[in-house]
């Protein structure tokens, strides 16, 4: 098993190398002159040249690339020109924020979408099937910034059930000690229930926003996959053997229907993690998506490179996790591996 994981990781090396080269080139061909941007509008050409030389941008591309790779090898992703911090530190602070939000949103979504999809398939054509369709269509057709703003309006402005959407934690509280980077887990681990409550009251609204958006693909995929499995021969055998409906649906059909659902989960997760800039903006969430967008707008190439690289590595790990899950669910995949 371990050897298998190692081999699987080794195959990801070429794609990581590809990602490094492509992001390097892309950030160099982006329109906009980094040096001019940071020199300011009143800068003299001479000052711009000085900054350019300081950043190493005056050297030919291959030389810049070698320098970049050398830095990478020592774990140095460069400094962000906007925040003035090392990119690695920025990512380390912001990635857990995005991950915590996305995971919670996804968890909520699974808890609703999977049972809904199963019920819709078992009672095909009933009111619950229609409900599933309506929820899924509504969730996916409302843009996240709209649902986000709507939720803020209702639960913060009107009802006052949620605190102001101003980041991960109200400023009365200090962040829990950094164990996993997830505030909910860290505060629980240190027994600080007060902080836990505060962190939760901040996160639930954006998490619900994400959940509403990701309901659709998961519910639809669960339903379609369940319908296919429920029509298969072995379910007929199980019925002919007199097994209980609950055993047939959950024990036999659902486990067989899981593979496409897991694939969808992986896709939704990776999509949400990097692409929920709008949610992060609405809730002032200090996440990785808004960080990357800001860097991109200011032609701040080091954070962009760092962001893309971090996402690539995350995708590799995510796919590995999905492969391992496949193996747990389906013995046939285990043999192939």
């Amino acid at each position: 098993m371990l050897a298998q994981i190692a081999r699987r990781l080794a195959t990801a090396i070429p794609s990581i190398i590809g990602v490094i080269i492509v992001t390097f080139l892309l950030t160099r061909v982006l329109p906009g002159d980094t040096a001019a941007y940071f020199a300011g509008p009143a800068a003299t050409p001479q000052a711009i040249e000085e900054i350019r030389a300081k950043l190493g941008l005056d050297k030919p591309l291959p030389v810049q690339f070698v320098a970049y790779v050398k830095d990478l090898a020592t774990g140095n992703l460069g400094n962000s020109l906007t925040t003035g911090q090392p990119v690695l530190d920025d990512l380390r602070a912001r990635l857990p924020a995005s991950a915590e939000l996305t995971l919670l949103g996804l968890l909520l979504s699974i808890l609703i979408a999977v049972p809904l999809g199963i019920l819709a398939a078992v009672r095909q054509g009933s009111w619950i099937d229609h409900l599933c369709r309506i929820v899924a269509t509504a969730g996916v057709s409302l843009p996240v910034f709209f649902t986000g703003l709507l939720l803020v309006y209702v639960f913060y402005f009107r009802l006052g059930w949620a605190p102001a959407p101003l980041g991960r934690l109200d400023f009365f509280y200090s962040a829990p000690p950094d164990i996993t980077g997830f505030y909910l887990i860290d505060s629980l681990a240190t027994g600080d229930f007060e902080t836990f409550r505060a962190a939760f009251s901040q996160i639930w609204l954006p998490a619900v926003t994400l959940a509403i958006f990701s309901l659709a693909p998961i519910a639809r995929m669960t339903r379609a996959s369940m319908l296919a499995v429920l029509a298969s021969d072995f379910v007929r055998t199980a019925r002919a053997s007199g097994l209980k409906p609950s055993k047939i649906v959950l024990g036999y059909a659902f486990r067989n229907a899981l593979l496409p659902v897991i694939t969808t989960l992986g896709m939704v997760f990776s999509f949400l993690l990097g692409a929920n800039v709008l949610v992060e903006k609405v809730f002032a969430w200090p996440g990785i998506g808004s960080y990357a967008i800001e860097a991109l707008i200011t032609s701040d190439y080091a954070p962009v490179q760092g962001f893309v690289l971090a996402m690539a590595i995350l995708y590799v790990l995510l796919n590995l996790a999905i492969d391992i899950l496949y193996g747990l669910v389906d013995p046939r995949v285990r043999i192939e591996a």
């Binding site: 072995f234 007929r236 389906d330 013995p331």
Partner: peptide, 12 residues
């Protein structure tokens, strides 16, 4: 049934 392989739960 016909097609015995399909008549069995493939992952149990």
């Amino acid at each position: 049934f016909q097609n015995p392989r399909a008549a069995l739960n493939p992952i149990r």
